Simulated scan of single mutants.
Amino acid sequence: MALKNIQSQKVHYSADGKLEMNLEEFKEWLKKFDVDKDGKISKEELQEVVRSTGGRFCRIKGWRGMKFADTNESGFIDENELNNLVEFAQKYLHVRIVY
């Protein structure tokens, strides 16, 4: 289901196969995974993000992404921690944020 979200959106892929989007498109894309619409990304929602990019080991990468991005250790990634999630996505999820 999450993969359908990527495919229904106009996306661009770079020559090396990475999903390319600007920061605003990345934020809008993440909102599709915010199942409870609380404006934050939970570990489970992050696992779906990983799954949607074709990533393997979704649980492990979801846990790693949460540790990487959730600097206040609230168990959620909020707007203030989004830059950390951008960095994680670029390193581990084959996503490129273009500015």
Rank of each mutant, 00 (worst) to 15 (best):
L85M: 11
F68I: 04
E48K: 12
R59D: 05
N84I: 06
I41M: 14
E48Q: 08
F26D: 05
E20Q: 15
L23S: 14
L3H: 12
A2F: 12
E48N: 12
F68T: 01
E87V: 07
F33Y: 15
L19Q: 01
E25D: 09
R56P: 00
K18I: 05
K18T: 11
S14C: 01
W29C: 07
V86K: 12
F26E: 03
K27M: 07
K18F: 10
E81I: 02
K27N: 06
F26H: 06
Q47S: 10
G17S: 10
I41A: 05
S42W: 08
Y99D: 12
N84F: 07
N22M: 07
N22L: 11
E87W: 03
I77Y: 01
W63T: 13
D70H: 03
I41K: 00
E79M: 06
E45M: 06
F57N: 15
K91M: 12
S8P: 00
D70Y: 08
E81A: 01
L46Q: 08
D70G: 04
Y99L: 12
K61E: 04
E20P: 02
K31E: 09
W63H: 12
D70T: 03
V50R: 03
I77Q: 04
M1W: 10
N22D: 15
S42T: 15
A89Y: 04
L85K: 02
V50Q: 03
N5R: 13
S14G: 15
V11C: 06
L85I: 05
V35M: 11
L46H: 05
Q47H: 04
I41C: 00
N72G: 06
F68C: 02
G17W: 10
A89S: 15
N72T: 08
A69F: 01
I97F: 11
Q47I: 06
I97A: 08
F88M: 05
G55D: 00
E20M: 13
I97C: 03
S14Y: 00
E25H: 10
F68H: 08
H94E: 13
V98G: 12
A89T: 09
Y13P: 08
L82H: 04
M1Q: 14
G55N: 00
A89I: 08
R59E: 09
D36L: 13
K43C: 07
L82I: 14
V95T: 11
S8K: 13
G54E: 11
N72H: 13
N84E: 12
N84D: 09
L30G: 02
R51Q: 13
N5I: 08
S74I: 02
K18A: 14
N84H: 11
K32W: 03
N72D: 15
G55E: 00
L23N: 07
D38T: 13
N84G: 14
R59S: 13
V98W: 02
S42Y: 10
G54Y: 04
E81C: 03
L19C: 04
F76K: 10
G62E: 01
F88G: 06
G75T: 09
W29E: 10
F33Q: 03
F33K: 08
T71M: 07
K32N: 07
L3P: 00
E24Q: 15
L23Y: 08
S74D: 15
L23E: 14
R64D: 04
N84R: 12
S42L: 10
E25F: 07
A89L: 04
K40C: 14
R51M: 09
W63I: 03
V49M: 02
W29H: 06
Q90F: 01
